[in-house]
Nucleic acid binder design. Structure first.
Lengths: 151, 151
DNA sequence: TATTGTTATACTCTATAACTATA
DNA sequence: TATAGTTATAGAGTATAACAATA
């Protein structure tokens, strides 16, 4: 054992930082969520994109990229994947042939339903150590800070 | 404007998920923190590593990787960078020539101090929309969930 | 045999620039 | 000129396997 100045080896210098702790937790949450979604052969972004398309049929790729805060260019492969698996279609938009209206298929809607249930169940387990009140407070704070930072 | 089923275009299907909202906020926090650290030509991991080394002089690379929850192999380039800039040294460990005892230099300690101040100031601004009580509660919840999930 | 530091490699996520077709 | 979708590319983070030196 290497002797250090303190008796314990830890991240004391960083543990007071919300950002640091959020990153550490997010890493665990992502890994766990990825495992849940892997059962449906989905990753986080395709899952998110499909969920939004089911809720907002007809949305364009630029709009969807805006909703998810990702680059249009990075959405293309995700849309390709979802379309290739017949979860969505790229329908033409009357009056603007540049746009695609993203539409869920029946299989896509079903997949979104099932995957969303699994994700919500998984969240309930993952954050189960928190009370309902705490979870509500956590969610509210995350959204509040995001809105404040994001203008 | 493309007309969708709802009047607003948003991420309703996902906004109830803590994980999703945490990822969205984390993305903003990371980008902002990266900007702060860029003033010192540091990124998040080198900053974190240096902070721990200053607090725990003599720590080995394997131990440091464990503290930060990253792979040993991915730490090597970070240590190379910090050593190349004379912020740390790799001292020999008496009795085990496999190990490096990571030691901060004076310049490294100074850099850690200055950068940590900037990061804490930045956090205060970033999470300024929350009260002190809320920030404490948020930090406590992040740590509580991490400990629960991480065994 | 096991561990430490290291190298090589590959995959994901993310960001930017530039192209095409359409407007 | 500007916008939508696309392609190519590069950087950063992360994960795994294998090696040399040492225990």
């Amino acid at each position: 054992m290497t002797q250090t100045t303190d008796d314990t080896i830890g991240d004391d210098a960083l543990s007071g930082l919300i950002g640091y702790n959020m990153k550490r937790l997010m890493s665990l949450v992502s890994a766990d969520l990825a495992r849940v979604l892997a059962a449906f052969d989905l990753r986080m972004l395709p899952f998110s994109a499909l969920s939004v398309i089911v809720r907002q049929p007809g949305i364009s790729q630029t709009e969807l990229a805006g909703v998810l805060s990702i680059e249009r260019s990075n959405l293309v492969q995700i849309i390709d994947d979802l379309a290739g698996r017949d979860f969505i279609t790229r329908a033409p938009v009357a009056g603007d042939r540049r746009r695609n209206a993203l539409m869920p298929t029946k299989a896509g809607s079903k997949m979104a339903d099932v995957a969303q249930k699994a994700v919500f169940d998984h969240e309930a387990r993952l954050f189960g150590v928190l009370s309902d009140t705490e979870r509500d407070a956590l969610l509210a704070m995350l959204i509040k800070v995001r809105q404040a930072v994001d203008q």
